[in-house]
Simulated scan of single mutants.
Amino acid sequence: MALMPSLNPRIVEALYAEALGLAETVRVRFERLRREVAAQVDPQDDEDLRRVQISCEALRTTTRVMHCLAWLLNHRAHFAGELSELQLRRHGRLIANFPASEADVVATLPDDVRALVMESERLYQRIQRLEQAWRQANLSGDSAVRRLRERLASAVESAA
């Protein structure tokens, strides 16, 4: 049932716990940042752009972590026998080109929030590398189609 030597249930569980914790931390911290910015707004100033930028970065960061969680949940389901490898390969893909954070906006965030954004990007990159290696291992390794062809060829040889 192992997908590849470097991807196993322990790694998936550890990454899942990390991603779950990060998701909650990101949610709480961006919510607090929104309240802080709202409290600083002078009714005479137009701070709508700043609030929109923070909301967009919060959404982008949270979504990035949620995509990681979805990928990990699919792999947990596979290891638990709830998803076949075919189902996992068809429906368990990570988005390859997830929109990057806007560097100029991230630069204006408080240090701890900026660190959370960077941590979410690193997690996503790690999951991307795992997925690429996992998919590549199956291409070069023992595929179901190749095994079926070998069995068919063996059956034809036996019948002849």
Rank of each mutant, 00 (worst) to 15 (best):
V26I: 11
W71S: 01
L7Y: 11
S140T: 15
R35F: 08
M4C: 08
A155V: 11
E57P: 04
A144G: 00
R146C: 08
L69A: 05
A100T: 12
L86C: 15
V105N: 03
Q132I: 10
Q136V: 13
E102M: 11
E36L: 07
R93N: 07
D104E: 13
I95G: 03
N138A: 09
L88E: 00
N8G: 12
V117G: 02
P43Q: 03
R50E: 08
R51Q: 14
P43A: 06
A159Q: 13
A38Q: 09
E150H: 10
P99Q: 04
Q44Y: 09
S6Q: 12
E24Y: 12
W71R: 02
V52L: 11
D111M: 11
R151A: 14
P99V: 08
V26D: 00
V12F: 03
H67G: 01
T63W: 00
A19D: 02
R60H: 06
L7K: 08
Q125A: 08
L109G: 01
L22F: 02
V65G: 01
L59W: 01
G21I: 02
D46S: 14
A96N: 08
S143Q: 15
W71V: 02
R29E: 04
A58T: 00
D45K: 10
E131T: 02
R60S: 08
R76T: 03
D48G: 09
D112Y: 13
D104L: 14
T25D: 08
V26K: 00
Q128E: 09
D112G: 13
A70I: 04
L139M: 12
A2R: 15
R147T: 04
V145W: 10
E119P: 01
Q132P: 04
F30H: 10
T108K: 15
A80V: 09
C56W: 01
H91L: 14
Q128W: 09
A77P: 03
V52W: 07
Y124K: 02
M1Q: 15
R50M: 07
F98R: 02
A160E: 12
A2H: 12
A23E: 09
D46W: 08
